[in-house]
Design a protein around this nucleic acid. Structure first.
Lengths: 349, 349
DNA sequence: ATGAAAGCGCTAACAA
DNA sequence: TTGTTAGCGCTTTCAT
């Protein structure tokens, strides 16, 4: 009387049941090149009856491949990064890979620790939004690295994927322009100087393209939060030295939302009195009235593309590549055609 | 002249450098119980100079433990589940574990496939929000299972973690009651009959506790979306056969947001004319004016607790347990004190 | 077409 | 306190 074993079946169990060697089972498992159809059938039956499932750990140890990708992002609870993660997962899954997600919380030490941990035999490549520029750490990882986010192209040796900020800003400015708002006021965050400079630089480029004098745009320096956007809008409305802008372009949606609140509180109508456009395309923008017009970054695609690139690199194809993905204009109610000055004066009184 | 090796260092390399056996190195790695301080120092130096990092795959294969948890949720891009995931990750990380997240998209087949894949030697336990009731699949997994979400307690054999819907509804009803709204109208989704029944059941229980006749509450059956909530509110306002409710209690925030929009369009003020309370505590609720008062479910805690439970089970402690975590009232502007009928009539006219 | 045997990097008896 | 040895489950030569 043999005692029943409760441990998962191994390749050896299958071999015994089928009356073959484990090599043969392995061959069947591998998509079976040269195995006799009869043998194959026997093995397959044995696999089914034993409930065998391949042990990825053993396979990984032997082959040096885990078919796992590491994804280091600031925070999975942030909707932006959650979308990126979902994209990476979907692309990976389609190719039979998994994604191990870790959070850096924008902290370089945490990021480094995670990168180390991921490489301890767990993943074949990492996709990372670098919190701090630490090329040395990345270089010593000894596995393919794909950089995502704005800092990506600073390290040409690694592949990178980012959204096209220039084209996004252009989309926004062109849309405003078409509605008669050639010189919107700008709401920009000052807390991240690099991001601020990048944003303003791009806006100026676009202005020149559209034949607008960059310095005719009012710039209101503020913070990336809704409260800050609210305060900035109030300042803009209170400024006695210049006319009220017909439109406001906020560098993110949170500020745009704050601006809209300030407008409402001031008894002004959006978009009739002031149009507002944001960037990011956060979900809340669709839930308010009027809906927030915004520039949506290709979050999901950043995920899918970076996963694809990572897997490509692991499989030896291709040198480092730098992908720049287009943004999209989400038209909702917060941008409208400019009223004639007379009309807007009248409604204001 | 020895050629330089570019493969990662193994325990054997370390042993050779330190002039000891790999067992000794392993002992140092394990937190080194009985190793001579001198030897230990030599080994540690060897570890540092070689840049050695433990191979988790090999360790896992040998010990049968991966220190990885599988987390099966409907969708990581859904903020609710992203928060749960973050909680699980944080709790796991604190104990030196990792979490492998996969998405079921509320599809039973996908869920089953993922569960299978996770068990192929990758994770030591799974935490799952079951899309369909499939206890057999879970039983045959051969590893600890923790169920999260409403269906959890249907399988007493597995540990479960869920929010306390009863207490949450009680919080909402009590808050409304304190503000003079004893009999709010209910907005409930009809698409998920089980959830609908559960919600109404709980509301009725709470009514009885508070001495309110359950059937004095108007019930508007609708859908879980914002558009549906909007339409439902309009029906409520148009109903000629009963007075306009002083307050509305929506079974989720999306419906509540829709209701608020309908109110505004009808020229009514929230909360002066009609108070609104929702459930979920979504981020958008804080971004609109007035802020949406809501019952927040303990998403993050569901994650941390379920990860803790899973790890407990793996380490052999404790039998199945069923955790029920409290909800929290987020007071914002959408619920206000009831106006006297006279007053409300006047403002309406 | 099939099998025997070695070995991936590690841990855990057991021995010394 | 330290070392020897076996083996986790798999893939991969190399024989047959």
């Amino acid at each position: 009387m043999t005692s029943k074993r409760h441990r998962p079946a191994t390749i050896i169990d299958v071999a015994r049941i089928a009356g073959v060697s484990k090599t043969t089972v392995a061959r069947v498992l591998a998509g079976g090149e040269q195995v006799d159809p009869t043998t194959r059938a026997r093995v397959e039956k044995a696999i089914a009856t034993s409930g065998y499932e391949r042990n990825h750990l053993a396979q990984g140890l032997r082959t040096g491949r885990t078919r796992m990708l590491g994804l280091v992002i600031p925070d999975i609870a942030n909707p932006y990064w959650a979308d990126v993660a979902r994209g990476a997962q979907d692309a990976a899954e389609k190719l039979g890979w998994s994604v191990l997600i870790v959070n850096s919380d924008w902290d370089r030490d945490r990021e480094d620790r995670h990168l180390r941990a991921l490489r301890q035999g767990r993943v074949d490549a990492v996709i990372v939004n670098p919190a701090g520029p630490s090329p040395d750490m990345l270089r010593t990882l000894g596995c393919p690295v794909v950089l995502i986010g704005s800092g990506g192209e600073d390290f040409p040796e690694f592949s990178s994927v980012r959204s096209n900020a220039h084209q996004g800003v252009q989309l926004a400015m062109a849309h405003l322009h078409r509605q008669g708002h050639a010189t919107p006021a700008l709401l920009v965050g000052r807390t991240r100087p690099a991001a601020r400079a990048r944003f303003l630089g791009v806006v100026h480029d676009v202005c020149r393209q559209q034949g607008i004098a960059p310095h005719s745009l009012a710039i209101e320096d503020t913070d990336y939060s809704m409260a800050a956007g609210h305060a900035a809008m109030r300042r803009l409305l209170a400024a006695a030295d210049r006319e009220r802008p017909s439109a406001v372009f906020a560098a993110n949606d949170l500020m745009a939302l704050g601006a809209m609140t300030a407008l409402r509180e001031a008894g002004l109508d959006c978009p009739r009195d002031v149009s507002v456009i944001g960037m990011d395309g956060i979900a809340a923008g669709a839930l308010i009235a009027p809906g927030l017009t915004s520039i949506e970054k290709p979050r999901y695609a950043i995920g899918t593309e970076s996963a694809g690139l990572a897997i490509e690199h692991i499989e030896g194809r291709s040198a480092a590549r730098h992908l720049v993905l287009p943004c999209r204009l989400i038209k909702r109610g917060s941008v409208g055609a400019r009223q004639s000055t007379l009309l807007s004066r009248r409604t204001r009184a």
